Simulated scan of single mutants.
Amino acid sequence: MTAIAKIKASVATPADRAGMIDWTAVADELASQGAAVMPALLTPEECREIAALYPDDKRFRSHVVMARHGFGKGEYKYFSYPLPDLIGGLRTSLYPRLAPIANEWNQRMGIDTRYPAEHQEFLALCHRAGQQRPTPLLLQYVPGDYNCLHQDLYGDLAFPLQVAILLSEPGRDFTGGEFVLTEQRPRMQTRPEVVPLRQGDAVVFAVHHRPVKGSRGSYRVNLRHGVSRIRSGRRHTVGVIFHDAK
Rank of each mutant, 00 (worst) to 15 (best):
R229N: 14
A12N: 15
F122H: 04
Q162D: 03
E183G: 05
Y154Q: 13
L166V: 02
D85Y: 08
M188S: 15
D201W: 11
R68Y: 05
L30I: 00
V204A: 05
D85G: 12
C126E: 09
I241N: 08
Y219N: 12
R216D: 12
P44L: 09
A67L: 07
D152Q: 07
A18W: 06
R187W: 10
F122W: 10
V26E: 00
G217T: 08
G34E: 01
G177L: 01
S93R: 02
H150R: 08
P196I: 03
Y95W: 00
D56N: 15
S10F: 14
E121N: 03
F71A: 08
Y219K: 13
R231F: 03
R133L: 05
S10T: 15
K246Q: 14
L223W: 01
D145G: 06
R187I: 10
E46H: 07
L42Q: 05
R187A: 09
Q120D: 15
R97V: 00
I21A: 04
R61C: 13
P14G: 04
A206G: 08
L181A: 07
D112I: 15
T135S: 08
L153T: 14
G217Y: 07
D28F: 13
A129L: 08
V65Y: 10
R191M: 09
L94G: 00
Y146G: 05
P136F: 01
R128P: 11
K8I: 14
V11Q: 13
P136V: 05
N106T: 07
E121A: 08
D16R: 15
D57H: 13
T175N: 01
A15M: 08
E183H: 12
V204M: 07
E46N: 10
E45H: 14
A51I: 02
P116H: 01
H69D: 10
A202V: 08
K6E: 15
